[in-house]
Design a protein around this nucleic acid. Structure first.
Length: 479
DNA sequence: CCTGGAGTTGTCCTA
DNA sequence: TTAGGACAACTCCAG
């Protein structure tokens, strides 16, 4: 189906801020002249309005996307239904293209929108630009969704149709502008008044080019030792692609096939498969969110509705600020605050600490991560917090309680990561870096540390809080 | 419907 | 010093 060349169609950019392997954009530009737009929608997003760190990232990413579109990207803010209606009547648009999103609020919004547009004889063409497999395609034989990762991935995904191979770059020769649009990217108010993002600017390169650079660096420096190295926060073995993936600056298909292009390399098999399975975890999270839309707010396992979570404002604040007195936890929380990111293993450590040692509800962690993470993603964030909370799909067993001292010694054996984010512990010898409260007086003195002054005393006792958690989990046993 | 095997990432204790 | 088992019971999944 082709429209005449004078016809203007719309490509609506959402979580697909790229030109390469963009199925909707690729089709749109083949249909004739295209008006590329972005709409900041804070109207429909409900209790998960985009967080602050994400907004900074989005600002940078949109800026770069606009550059690659020769400044033809048009920005709008508000309810897409109203904005699209105006554009459609103004330019007599007959076709609109977008890549699908999977957050429940977006599914609802887009379904309503599609309905209305089609009633006006506008052809709505939607594509899969964000997932390797559509959530409704990966089901058990009886048609119900998977709740355990391994069968989901091995039986479900790997036996399903192979992911689409990436499409070429979309041509931008026939873009048109909305001449009356006065809104600039700055009018979207994505940036905060206080410039807390200055450190982040040095660390991240939002946008399609930055994503490509990350892939290349990861493939040449991180992938071959990924399986082991991914556990160590000071090593360079994790891809750090999550924010790029979240905003669609790269598709999972591109990553999938780029990584797989290395498969003939000697000794890479285990690491490669492990990395691909991490993309599988992303798919699993989206699958869960799609089939259990309450995932962000309700315990997947109902018995957890009776879990004796506590509420302690002081604990929450100290956890957020990285002042728990447990250096590996505090390092993680400060990494998050400073960089908008946290290494995966440390996410588990701080998550376990919040939920199991502080007995705070996983919602507290979920909300904080949502606001602070540049890769905040409704599916992954919700699924992961439920996982560490023990209430999710295929969740961590109740007895798996991370010991922040052991984890530090094991995965940050030189203390490089911990000291990077907690410089006040720079002079602390490694034997006591993760448990400074147990250090003898002279050691503390020599390290220039007065506990409770230069660095906090631990806010809970490890052994005691662990036992309390085990008790709490016992209390929700079914019989 | 029944059955059996298995389930991302840990810790602690004991022999 | 190190390796192995306990830590519960449940649900999931496939045959």
């Amino acid at each position: 189906m082709k429209t005449s060349n004078n016809q203007v169609s719309i490509h609506w950019f959402r979580q697909d801020l790229r030109l390469l392997d963009n199925p909707a954009l690729f089709s749109a530009v083949q249909s004739g002249r295209v008006l590329p737009i972005y709409i900041l929608d804070d109207v429909n997003s409900g209790d998960h309005k985009m967080g602050s760190a994400s907004r900074w990232w989005l600002y940078k990413s949109l800026t770069n996307l606009n550059l690659s579109l020769s400044n033809n990207l048009e920005f709008y803010k508000g309810n897409p239904q109203i904005i699209l209606n105006e554009l459609i009547s103004k330019y007599h648009v007959k076709e609109i293209f977008w890549n699908r999103c999977y957050e429940p609020w977006r599914i609802k919004r887009d379904a309503e929108l599609k309905n209305i547009l089609e009633q006006q004889d506008v052809l709505v063409r939607t594509f899969n630009g964000s997932l390797l497999w559509e959530p409704w395609k990966i089901l058990k034989k009886d048609g119900s969704p998977y709740k355990v990762f391994t069968p989901f991935y091995k039986k479900g995904c790997l036996n399903a149709k192979v992911p689409r191979t990436p499409l070429p770059c979309a041509s931008i020769d026939s873009l048109v502008a909305d001449k009356d649009n006065q809104i600039t990217i700055d009018d979207l108010d994505l940036l905060p008044k206080i410039k807390w993002y200055q450190d982040m600017e040095k660390l991240w390169e939002p946008g399609e080019k930055g994503a490509k650079n990350k892939i290349n660096t990861f493939i040449s420096e991180g992938l071959s030792e990924y399986k082991e190295g991914r556990n160590f926060p000071s090593k360079k073995n994790v891809s750090q692609l999550s924010p790029h993936l979240h905003f669609g600056e790269v598709s999972p298909n591109q990553i999938w096939y780029d990584a797989r292009s290395q498969e003939s390399k000697h000794g890479i098999e285990d690491s490669l498969n492990h990395f691909l399975s991490e993309l599988g975890w992303r798919e699993f999270s989206y699958n869960l969110l799609y089939h259990f839309p309450k995932l962000p707010t309700e315990n997947l396992q109902k018995k957890f509705d009776n879990f004796p979570w506590t509420a302690n404002g002081e604990f929450i604040n100290r956890w957020k600020k990285g002042l728990t007195g447990y250096p590996i936890v505090d390092a993680g929380m400060r990494e998050l605050w400073k960089t908008g990111y946290m290494h995966n293993r440390i996410r588990m450590v701080v998550g376990s600490f919040l939920v199991k040692n502080l007995l705070l509800h996983w919602h507290e962690g979920e909300r904080w991560f949502w606001d602070c993470l540049i890769d905040a993603d409704l599916a992954s964030n919700s699924a992961s917090w439920q996982w560490i909370g023990g209430c999710g799909a295929d969740a961590a067993p109740y007895f798996r309680i991370f010991n922040p001292v052991t984890q530090g010694l094991k995965f940050d054996a030189e203390g490089e990561y911990t000291k990077k984010y907690i410089p006040e512990l720079e002079a602390m010898p490694i034997e006591f870096l993760f448990n400074p409260w147990e250090a003898p007086k002279d050691i503390l003195e020599e390290a220039n540390i007065v506990l409770g002054k230069d660095y906090p005393e631990p806010i809970v006792d490890l052994k005691e809080s662990r036992e309390k958690a085990l008790e709490a989990f016992k209390s929700i046993k079914v019989n």
